[in-house]
Design a protein around this nucleic acid. Structure first.
Length: 761
DNA sequence: GGAGGCCTCGGAAGG
DNA sequence: CGAGGCCTCC
């Protein structure tokens, strides 16, 4: 382990060795940021710092997990004592420990976004407001923004600027909704994601002795992706670091892409003002990408005004130019991209997992998926609906939540009549009405249904009693059974398992499998049981951070060799040899909603910068001239971002007829003309389809024509692999392949459609 | 209470 | 186009 310092370059070394006082590390894309962070922590421990005095905050679980594993490799098991995790998970731990001070139960529920929106919707309706005006999503965002800026419901309702703004938007009641929402969360013993941050601030603000305790605990603080912190996170970090000032923030202002959810790029730009005598380090050598890619990325980001001056460079080889692919339609775009992937795969013998297809919006994945499927290229989509957001999983988890926190209102509403047990809407409405008038939780009323005047008839009353008894019986088992035994018992006892199992449609089968998967997770968790008289791996323990988990945290076994499809946002921090950035069109990327504001356009540009810097060897930019949007065809111009790359690093699409050699810049006019063309839409579509078909196989003139007539036993010459002999030919038409045994490169499978192959003799 | 038809509306996304 | 919400009808 003493060797680790020598694995670093000079600036990395400086950043690792400076362990005291405020430090800022500006880490350019691909500059070995994670390596510096892990070595820095290793170095701290090596210098006698106790692991439990180190707090490292990340933005994703994945980043935290990766870093912990790497540190463990360097310094061993001690790494497990590090406080390392996302802001949310670390703060949730603090809040569980200090729950009493804020009036929350130890087992408080963490409401996910859906729970929170459902509660808001209920409040909006109960208040007699129109949920067309007060859309739960919009109200949620407004409340979230308030919490991210440390504005409580009380403060919100006293703030004239905010109230005026709400009035101006025609939503003067948001302040009151915020107030009710906060009260309901307290009654339910629940916190939403933003509360995990906000209440931590509240805790430290109201209880200085608690703050001091954590200041003394977290003597060394590291914050990753500092450019993406919001005001609340920034403030808490500042509070914690105030005593010892051993704070190290790492980030890259050029990669700040989350301002739309409250991230404040100023936090990193102002670090030197916030912390006097701070040192800063720049990591500028890129180890990831070719010279060409780095140069193109630098050229793009230089168009932005607000940024730290940085000079990212690389010693890597020159590499290929960035290639632009132009297609007529979005479907053709998918096809050409998939073809290209296949051709690179077979020509250069690379794995599927060396490719990524990145897009601005999730909706763009479809045409890519279809084309990949047609060519039998395995792929994996990141994002989309999470496992934990699926209905059947949320239903079962709602029962689990009720087991240890029956006051959880959203859980109760979700399952009180699922599976159906004759407690209908009118009955539930009466329960809610009573709960609101008694200032009690729904569970308080439901579990004491005979003590309240609810106006509910005897039939439903009995059913509510049964439901309450069932929930209480689960609760009494909580510390007698381990998580799996109780979880499994609940799944069958409630009738949920049977209900899902009864559905033999493909969707139903998949739901059943999902539940089995959850139960398997419980089993794994329970198997780590310590030897003890009472179960230690209990259901409430399992549930502690389930709400904070995402799909990225589930290890996917058979996803190893697949092409990755994801939005550019979720690609941050990842790297791939070959990257396709698709949908490079005006009003898509940059997004239509951003083009009228400089700051928003700059964020889109940073997003493009992130996209390009994911690539090691090659970047392809594709755009389509027409695209289906919301069911109708729209005409698109190539993205301005393409023209922001100097032609030295760019290869424009080959166009036919070849006299139009100037490529995009000339063709843009043609596109404009086309979109104004008087030809009826239907007719235009037909002609587009014809064109699409005629250009569908990218050809290398004069070479692959011969390749198509290839036969077994023939001697051939490959542009890259040199001389070889055909041992086998299979498939027909465009999927015709040959197995060729090369003299210097061994046996390879080659797709003839793309093969740069010559028949010899 | 649930299936099926109609209407609406559409950014990106971590926890 | 397609997902999700709402309403209607059985």
């Amino acid at each position: 382990m003493s060797d680790y310092i020598n694995e670093l370059n000079d600036s990395q070394k400086e950043a690792v060795l400076s362990i005291y006082g405020p430090n800022m590390i500006l880490a350019g894309a691909g500059s070995g940021k994670t390596r510096v962070l892990t070595y820095r922590i290793a170095h701290l421990l090596h210098n006698g710092v106790d692991a439990f005095n180190v707090l490292a905050l990340t933005f994703t679980n994945k980043a935290a997990k990766e870093m912990r594993e790497r540190i463990e490799k360097i310094i061993g098991l001690e790494a497990r004592s590090l406080w390392m995790g996302t802001f949310h998970s670390v703060f949730a731990k603090i809040l569980r420990k200090e729950h009493e001070k804020l009036g929350f139960p130890y087992n408080f529920t963490i409401y996910d976004t859906l729970d929170a929106k459902n509660l808001l919707k209920a409040i909006i309706k109960e208040s007699g407001l129109d949920d067309k005006v007060y859309k739960p999503g919009i109200v949620y965002n407004r409340i979230s923004a308030a919490k991210n800026n440390l504005i409580s419901a009380q403060a919100y309702n006293k703030d004239n600027a905010i109230l005026t703004e709400d009035k101006r938007m025609g939503k003067p009641e948001i302040g009151n909704i915020y107030k009710s929402y906060s009260l309901r969360c307290v009654k339910a013993g629940a916190m939403d994601f933003d509360d995990l941050i906000f209440k931590t601030y509240d805790l430290f603000d109201k209880f200085p002795e608690v703050l001091e305790k954590y200041q003394n605990l977290y003597k060394y603080i590291l914050v990753d992706e500092y450019q993406d912190t919001n005001y609340a996170q920034y403030t808490i970090v500042k509070m914690l670091a105030k005593k010892f000032k051993n704070i190290c923030v790492v980030g890259d202002d050029a990669q700040s892409i989350y301002s739309f959810r409250g991230a404040n790029i100023e936090n990193i730009l102002n670090f030197q003002k916030d912390y006097k005598d701070s040192k800063s380090f720049k990591l500028e050598q890129n180890y990831r990408s070719s010279k060409n890619i780095v140069a193109a990325a630098n050229a793009i980001i230089s168009k932005n005004k607000d940024q730290f001056p940085k000079d990212v460079w690389t010693q890597n080889e020159e590499g290929a130019k960035i290639k632009v692919i132009k297609t007529k339609t979005d479907n053709e775009e998918g096809k050409v991209v998939a073809d290209k992937i296949l051709s690179i795969k077979l020509q250069d013998q690379v794995q599927n997992n060396e490719f990524a297809i990145l897009y601005r919006t999730n909706a763009q994945s479809r045409s890519m998926e279809e084309s990949l499927r047609k060519l039998n290229i395995p792929y994996k989509i990141y994002g989309g609906q999470s496992f934990y957001q699926r209905k059947e999983i949320k239903d079962l988890l709602a029962y689990y939540r009720m087991t240890f926190n029956p006051n959880d209102e959203e859980a109760l509403k979700r399952v009180i009549n699922y599976p159906t047990r004759g407690i209908g809407k009118s009955t539930i409405d009466k329960l809610i009405l009573t709960a609101n008038s008694q200032n009690a939780s729904l569970w308080e009323i439901a579990s004491n249904i005979d003590h309240y005047n609810t106006g509910i008839g005897n039939g439903p009353k009995a059913k509510i009693r049964n439901f309450a008894t069932m929930i209480l019986s689960f609760g009494s088992e909580l510390h007698r059974k381990n998580a799996y035994d109780l979880g499994n018992y609940i799944a069958s006892q409630t009738g949920l398992l049977k209900d899902v199992h009864g559905d033999k449609t493909p969707e139903g089968v998949s739901r059943y499998e999902n539940i089995q998967e959850l139960l398997n997770g419980l089993k794994l968790f329970s198997n780590s049981e310590e030897i003890s008289d009472v179960p230690t791996q209990t259901l409430d323990k399992f549930m502690e951070d389930v709400a904070l988990l995402t799909d990225a945290d589930k290890d996917a076994e058979n996803d190893i060799d697949r092409v990755s499809l994801m939005t550019i946002h979720s690609s941050k921090g990842l790297e791939f040899p070959h990257v396709f950035i698709v949908g490079m069109e005006e009003n898509l990327f940059p997004s239509q909603l951003s083009v009228n504001s400089r700051t928003e356009l700059e964020e889109e540009r940073r997003l493009f910068y992130v996209a390009i810097t994911r690539a090691e060897k090659s970047v392809y930019l594709s755009y389509a001239q027409t695209r289906f949007k919301f069911g109708t065809i729209t005409y698109a111009e190539p993205s301005r971002f393409i023209t922001e790359i100097p032609l030295d690093y760019l290869e424009m699409p080959q166009v036919r007829p070849p006299r139009n050699f100037a490529g995009t810049r000339l063709n843009q006019e043609q596109v404009n003309k086309k979109s104004r063309s008087p030809i009826p839409l239907g007719q235009r579509l037909v002609s587009l389809q014809k064109v699409a078909r005629s250009v569908d196989s990218p050809s290398i003139p004069g070479i692959n024509k011969e390749g198509k007539d290839i036969k077994e036993g023939q001697k051939v010459e490959h542009l890259r692999f040199g001389p070889g002999k055909v041992t086998k030919v299979e498939g027909i038409g465009p999927s015709k392949k040959a197995v060729i045994s090369f003299e210097n490169h061994g046996e390879k499978q080659i797709l003839l459609k793309f093969a740069k192959l010559k028949i010899v003799g």
